[in-house]
């Protein structure tokens, strides 16, 4: 219960910093646009309503795309699926990475070796190549994109989490829990995990950004969410041939992805900074003092 509160508290503290507020405002506005976009789009995102690559004109403020669809409508409608898949893939990937990382750190010995070697093998594949491999063999499905992206995140998250968890597992409160004969699963979830909040939050933010980039990249390579459904990544690919005639077809989705990415990274950075500040200066002072006195027998 405390753990859940702490997550929210950490987010709240981060949002109240200047850095966090700016990041949240940037990312939030893009997310909001993606959510309400489909309902406010002036035209159908999939029907040709104007000319091919016509420049902005009254009624079509961002002009037409490669087959005369309204760019503004496609931008408004093409965000939510991208973001939803990215969010799903991020949660899945980070979740798996956290489970693997904590298990490796806490169980140690054989489990650690085995898990981390699997992670090493997965790390050997470049993320995009791995996703391409899956999609080209099994065909393009939304669930498959989600899994492919998640799998590309998990090993890196596992590495980071394991490193931090190793230190946490050495602390005495973990021993204290073990003394109560708590099951290992509960020690990991109840004692170790809450101390990894800041790492996990930072990873979530960072990985969400990567997810968007990978999915947009897959769409650009036409392995992603399939046309004619609108999608920012796909739009960049479709409209780049008309860049000179109507740049908005490429520029608008790029700007949105950029704002979202910058906003998320800024907010993530704020989380990292505030979580470091969670240890208040007085406590660090005391810690140092305790370290001095605690140098006694191991």
């Amino acid at each position: 219960m405390s753990a859940r509160w702490e997550w929210l508290a950490l987010l709240g503290r981060a949002a109240r910093t200047q850095r966090g507020a700016v990041g949240l405002a940037l990312a939030g506005s893009v997310v909001l646009l993606a959510i309400i976009g489909p309902f406010v789009a002036p035209h159908s995102p999939t029907l040709s309503v104007t000319g091919t690559f016509v420049p902005p004109a009254p009624g079509y403020p961002l002009g037409g795309d490669t087959i005369g669809r309204d760019v503004l409508s496609r931008v408004l409608a093409g965000g939510w699926l991208l973001l939803a898949v990215a969010a799903g893939a991020t949660v899945l990937g980070v979740g798996a990475g956290v489970v693997v990382g904590i298990s490796a750190a806490y169980l140690g010995r054989v489990s650690d070796g085995l898990l981390m070697r699997i992670v090493d093998v997965l790390l050997a594949f470049p993320p995009l190549v791995f996703a391409l491999l899956l999609l080209s063999v099994l065909g393009s499905h939304v669930w498959l994109i989600l899994i492919a992206v998640a799998v590309s995140h998990a090993p890196q998250v596992a590495r980071v989490v394991r490193a931090t968890a190793l230190e946490v597992c050495e602390r005495d409160f973990v021993r204290a829990a073990e003394l109560l004969a708590m099951p290992k699963r509960r020690v990991m979830a109840g004692e170790v995990l809450p101390n990894l909040i800041s790492v996990v939050m930072v990873e979530l933010g960072l990985r969400f950004t990567y997810s968007i980039l990978i999915i947009a990249g897959l769409s650009f390579l036409s392995f992603g969410i399939q046309p004619p459904a609108a999608n920012w990544g796909l739009m960049i690919n479709e409209n780049r041939i008309g860049l000179a005639a109507n740049p908005w077809g490429v520029v608008a989705p790029i700007i949105l992805i950029a704002i979202l990415t910058i906003g998320l990274n800024t907010f993530t950075d704020a989380i990292a900074r505030t979580s470091l500040g969670v240890e208040r200066p007085t406590e660090q002072f005391e810690l140092a003092a305790a370290g001095i006195a605690a140098g006694a027998t191991p």
Binding site: S2, R171, R175, A177, L180, P194, N195, L287, A290, A294
Partner: peptide, 25 residues
């Protein structure tokens, strides 16, 4: 434990820490 700076889980309230043995046992 020797060092009270590492033997209490910093993410739990004192109440939760003290109640934990009761909850488990």
């Amino acid at each position: 434990f020797q060092n009270p700076y590492t033997s209490l889980n910093p993410r739990k309230t004192v109440g939760q820490i003290v109640e934990q043995p009761l909850r488990e046992l």
